[in-house]
């Protein structure tokens, strides 16, 4: 397949991220979709939580205070400054800087991820380059000579990707694209670290073959 030039690819990817944000109201990010699928059994709780937060804010505030009293007793509440207590409850229920929680079922996340596979397949079909391959690439086969070795490396490499992106709180799209474009310090740091560590390991692997 002949690939797009850097300016065409950059424009397409940048504009896609814009379109994504405008249509969904959320910055582009993919590791969260993986998380939703992994915790699909919690969907019912998350849905209930989103419904509660979207409901009557006064009721939510009253419920929070009631639950706090039930858990810690009225004495604990009496120790606090009533004005501050009211302020804290208001902060939870009416923080305008935080977007309202929107519930999205894990199946929507699954559709999003699987659609990427379909889109990639369409791209290969559009230029007539689709073919099934048991090898990732000639370079990959040079680095990992035996098939078993290659597949094992992919499994553990995949584990590092899954574990690492959840631990870092984002991936190439969430940190690298959306976060970096907003100059978010955590995303700038994360992007620098994952690019540097990937480059270091690649240079080392290439030097060893």
């Amino acid at each position: 397949m002949e690939y797009w030039s850097w300016w065409l690819g950059g424009a397409a990817l940048g504009l896609f991220a814009v379109l994504f944000s405008l249509l969904t109201g959320k910055p582009l990010g993919v590791s969260g979709s993986w998380l939703s699928i992994a915790r699909r059994k919690d969907d019912a709780i998350l849905k209930k939580s989103a419904e509660v937060m979207e409901g009557d804010q006064e009721q939510v505030k009253d419920d929070l205070l009631a639950m706090t009293m039930a858990e810690f007793g009225e004495d604990a509440m009496a120790d606090n400054n009533p004005q501050r207590r009211e302020g804290e409850a208001n902060a939870i229920t009416s923080d305008k800087s935080k977007p309202k929680q929107q519930f999205t079922p894990w199946t929507v996340h699954l559709v999003f991820l699987l659609s990427m596979l379909f889109g990639s397949y369409l791209a290969a079909l559009s230029v007539g380059s689709f073919e099934l391959s048991t090898q990732l690439s000639p370079m990959h086969a040079k680095i990992f000579e035996h098939l078993g070795e290659e597949w094992l490396a992919l499994f553990f490499g995949g584990m590092m990707v899954g574990f690492g992106t959840q631990m870092a709180g984002g991936c190439t799209s969430g940190h690298g694209l959306s976060g970096t474009a907003q100059l978010v310090p955590a995303s700038l740091l994360s992007t620098f670290v994952f690019m540097a560590s990937a480059s270091t390991l690649t240079l080392l692997m290439n030097a060893l073959i």
């Binding site: 993919v30 590791s31 979709s33 993986w34 991820l113 699987l114 990427m116 596979l117 889109g119 990639s120 990732l136 690439s137 990959h140 490396a153 992919l154 553990f156 490499g157 995949g158 584990m159 590092m160 990707v161 899954g162 574990f163 690492g164 992106t165 959840q166 631990m167 870092a168 709180g169 991936c171 190439t172 799209s173 940190h175 955590a186 740091l189 994360s190 992007t191 670290v193 994952f194 690019m195 540097a196 560590s197 990937a198 480059s199 270091t200 390991l201 690649t202 692997m205």
Partner: peptide, 25 residues
Amino acid sequence: GTVPGSMLFGFGWAVTGACPSLVFV
């Protein structure tokens, strides 16, 4: 987890050529 997580992700990306979206691609 920002630094260790990103480091692990970088190593994984170098080995697999994939990130959470690229694997589907």
